[in-house]
Design a binder for these strands. Structure first.
Length: 562
RNA sequence: UCCGGGGUCGUUCAAUGGUAGGACGGCAGGUUUUGGUCCUGCAUAUAGGGGUUCGAGCCCUCUCCCCGGAACCA
C-alpha cells in the first residue's frame, strides 16, 4: 500500500506536516527510529468516509516508515458500545485494504489504568470528589473566569484510596463519586481544571461484562493506552487540540513502561452535500428517510461499498487530499472523479436501456437475428469482446429520440442518421405516438452496408446510441441515486441538516438489458454504456445501484440553458 | 470575554526567505463507434495595514475573519 496509487494524478508525493514531523523524529532518533500509530474508533456506530481518511493516515504513516498501526477500540463508555459495531469496523477496515491484525481494546487496560490511578492518588495528583456533575461543572468556571476548588480536593491519600477502592467495589451508586485529576483549577485551558478520570456506571460492558463499575473517561484512557501499546505518534482530529495539554499531563504523572507518545492533530475529512454526524445519520434511518446503514446514499463505508465505490479509489482520494490543519470541506466531485477514474479502467461495458422506447427497423428482414461484436472495455483490450444479438426491433433510451430536437441535438430525430452501437447506421423515417402525444415507437431504416457501425463511403454520424434487442432483453431494476442533501453544507441555513434533505434522492427504474447482465457477480461494478457505473446488488440478481454517472457535458449544458 | 488552532485560484492541497504550482470544477478547441476516456489551451489566489530583508505567502507587529474549547461523550 505504500506505492503510489495507480490512479492518482501524476504528481510528486505531496508533503504534509505529519509526514514531515515523523521524518524529523526519525532523523533525530526521538523514538529510537520507531513509528507506531493507532486507529482508535469507539465501537458505537459504523465507519464513514471521514474515518477512511483517518484510517489512511494512521495506517499509511506507519506503513510508510516501516512502523506498526493497531486498530484499537476506545471502549470506555459501556452505555453506547456494542460488539456488533466492533465486528463491522474490523470488516470495514479490512475492506478498505488495511490489515488490522488482532484488534486491541482500551478495556484491555482497565486494570493497569486502575493501578496508575492509585499511583496518581498516592502521589497527590488525584482525588475523589463527592459532588454531583452539575456542581462540578459550575465550579469549573468559564472562559476568562476563575475556577473554584472542590471542598474535597485536599482529602488525605489514605481517605482517597479507601474511597476509590469503595468506588471500585460496586457498593457506591452511579454519580455518587468521581475520581478527579488534581491539576490546576485556574488553568486557562479548561481541560486542565481537575478533569474527571473515573465515573461509576453500573452497566454491562460489551467485553468486560459486569467486572467493572468504574469506567475511565476518554482523556484518562487514551494517552495511557497509547503508552502501554508503545504508540509513538498519536494522530487525531483537530477538536482534540485543547486536550493535548491534558494528554501530556497524565503521561508525565504515570509510571510509563517506555517513551511518552505525542499527540498531533489534523483536520478531519468533510465533504460537500454530505453529513457524517452519527446522531443525524441515525435519525435518517429511524425516520425512514433511508433504508439502513448501508443505504447507498449514506457516506458510511458499508453504503459506499454497496454502491460500488472501489476501496482503492477511496484510498487514492484520501492519499491525494493530504493532511493539513485547515478546517476544510472537499467537493464531492473530487471523490467522484477518483471513483470514475478507477472504474473507467476496470469496469466492463454493457448495454442497458433504463427508460425504454421501441425502435423498429422497417426494412429489416422479418425474424432475422444477427450477432454483432462489442468490445468489453475500450480501456483494456485484455477484457476482450462479446457477441450481442441484433434484430429489427430494439429498445433505445427515450432521451435518444426527439420529435422536435433542441439546438445541437445529435441523436435521433426525423430524417437524422445515427449509429446503433456495434450494429448499423439507422435513419429515422418517422414515429408514432399515443393520445397524450408520448412517443411510443420510432421508425427507422438501416443501411446494410454499415454492418459493425462503419460506412464504407466514409460518411459520418454525430451520435452513437446504445440499444437492446427486444426479443433478447432481460429485465433489470436500476436504482438511481441523487445527493441526499440539496445544500453544499447541509444544515448551514437552519442548523439542522434535515432541513436540507432533497425530496427524491432515489429513483428505481425498470430497464431492459443485454443478457450478459445476468452474469454480473454480486457487488461487481459495470458500466452501462453512456449512462454510468452500476453495482450489482449483493443479494438480488437483476438489481443494480448506480455508483456514479458518467460525466455528461450534454446534460450539463441542457441544465444550464434552462 | 479568555485560551488554542487556522486564513494561498470557485474548491482543495503544495511552495519549509529566492520563478506562487498541482488536482477537481469552469471555459475553449482537438481526437473518438460512449456528448465517456484521452490530448491541447485559457481564466482565477497569498485577508488588510505597518515593518525586517537585496528579496516575504513564509520572519516581526497590529487589525480583521473562520474553527475549536467550560460532558461523569469520544
Amino acid at each position: 500500500m505504500s506505492e503510489t496509487p495507480s490512479n492518482a494524478p501524476d504528481t510528486p508525493a505531496a508533503s504534509n506536516f505529519v509526514r514531515d514531523l515523523v521524518r524529523a523524529d526519525n532523523e533525530q532518533g526521538t523514538f529510537g527510529g520507531r513509528v507506531q500509530t493507532r486507529f482508535p474508533p469507539e465501537p458505537n456506530g459504523y465507519l464513514h468516509i471521514g474515518h477512511a481518511k483517518a484510517i489512511c493516515v494512521d495506517f499509511g504513516i506507519a506503513e510508510e516508515f516501516g512502523g506498526l498501526c493497531k486498530l484499537r477500540f476506545d471502549d470506555t463508555n459501556p452505555v453506547t458500545e456494542e460488539t456488533e459495531y466492533v465486528d463491522a469496523i474490523v470488516d470495514d477496515v479490512r475492506w478498505l485494504g488495511f490489515e488490522p491484525g488482532e484488534p486491541v481494546y482500551a478495556s484491555d487496560y482497565f486494570e493497569t489504568l486502575y493501578q496508575w490511578a492509585e499511583h496518581l492518588i498516592a502521589t497527590g495528583f488525584a482525588y475523589v470528589d463527592d459532588q454531583d456533575a452539575e456542581t462540578i461543572s459550575a465550579q469549573r468556571g468559564g472562559y476568562g473566569r476563575p475556577g473554584v476548588e472542590s471542598p474535597f480536593r485536599d482529602r488525605s491519600v489514605e481517605e482517597n484510596l479507601a474511597l476509590f477502592r469503595a468506588m471500585r467495589s460496586g457498593d457506591l451508586p452511579d454519580g455518587s463519586h468521581v475520581l478527579r485529576a488534581k491539576a490546576d483549577m485556574q488553568h486557562e485551558n479548561m481541560q486542565l481544571r481537575d478533569p474527571i478520570m473515573y465515573r461509576i456506571r453500573h452497566e454491562h460492558h460489551h467485553r468486560t461484562g459486569d467486572q467493572w463499575v468504574l469506567y475511565p473517561t476518554y482523556d484518562w484512557a487514551h494517552g495511557q493506552s497509547d503508552a502501554i501499546e508503545g504508540v509513538t505518534h498519536s494522530l487525531c482530529s483537530l477538536e482534540f487540540d485543547s486536550h493535548r495539554a491534558l494528554y501530556d499531563w497524565y503521561l508525565e504523572h504515570c509510571p510509563l513502561p517506555g517513551d511518552q507518545p505525542r499527540q498531533t492533530e489534523f483536520a478531519r475529512l468533510e465533504l460537500t452535500y454530505t453529513i457524517t454526524s452519527k446522531r443525524k445519520l441515525r435519525q435518517l434511518i429511524d425516520d425512514g428517510v433511508v433504508d439502513g446503514w448501508d443505504d447507498p446514499r449514506l457516506p458510511t463505508l458499508r453504503a459506499l461499498r454497496r454502491r460500488g465505490y472501489p476501496a482503492t479509489a477511496i484510498r487514492s482520494f484520501c492519499d491525494f487530499i493530504g493532511v493539513a490543519k485547515t478546517n476544510s470541506r472537499h467537493q464531492i466531485e473530487m471523490l467522484e472523479w477518483f471513483i470514475r477514474n478507477e472504474l473507467n479502467r476496470t469496469a466492463l461495458r454493457r448495454m442497458a436501456v433504463l427508460r425504454p422506447i421501441k425502435l423498429v427497423v422497417t426494412n429489416w428482414p422479418a425474424g432475422h437475428v444477427e450477432m454483432v461484436e462489442l468490445v468489453n472495455n475500450p480501456e483494456n483490450p485484455d477484457d476482450g469482446v462479446r457477441e450481442v444479438p441484433f434484430t429489427g426491433e430494439v429498445w433505445i433510451e427515450d432521451d435518444d429520440f426527439k420529435a422536435e430536437p433542441p439546438p445541437k441535438y445529435f441523436r435521433l430525430t426525423p430524417g437524422r442518421e445515427v449509429r446503433l452501437r456495434g450494429a448499423y447506421y439507422v435513419q429515422c423515417t418517422g414515429f408514432s405516438n399515443d393520445a397524450d402525444g408520448n412517443v411510443t415507437e420510432v421508425h427507422c431504416t438501416y443501411d446494410p452496408d454499415t454492418r459493425g457501425g462503419n460506412a464504407p463511403d466514409g460518411r459520418k454520424v454525430k451520435a452513437t446510441i446504445h440499444w437492446v434487442s427486444t426479443a433478447h432483453a432481460v429485465p433489470i431494476e436500476a436504482a438511481l441515486y441523487e445527493r441526499l442533501f440539496a445544500a453544499e453544507v447541509p444544515g448551514e441555513r437552519t442548523g439542522d441538516p434535515i432541513d436540507d434533505l432533497r425530496p427524491n434522492s432515489k429513483t428505481v427504474l425498470a430497464g431492459k438489458a443485454e443478457a450478459a447482465l445476468g452474469d454480473v457477480a454480486p457487488g461487481q461494478v459495470v458500466q452501462f454504456e453512456r449512462l454510468g457505473y452500476f453495482a450489482r446488488d449483493g443479494e438480488r440478481a437483476g438489481l443494480f445501484h448506480r455508483t456514479v454517472g458518467l460525466k455528461d457535458d450534454w446534460a450539463n449544458a441542457q441544465k444550464r440553458t434552462k
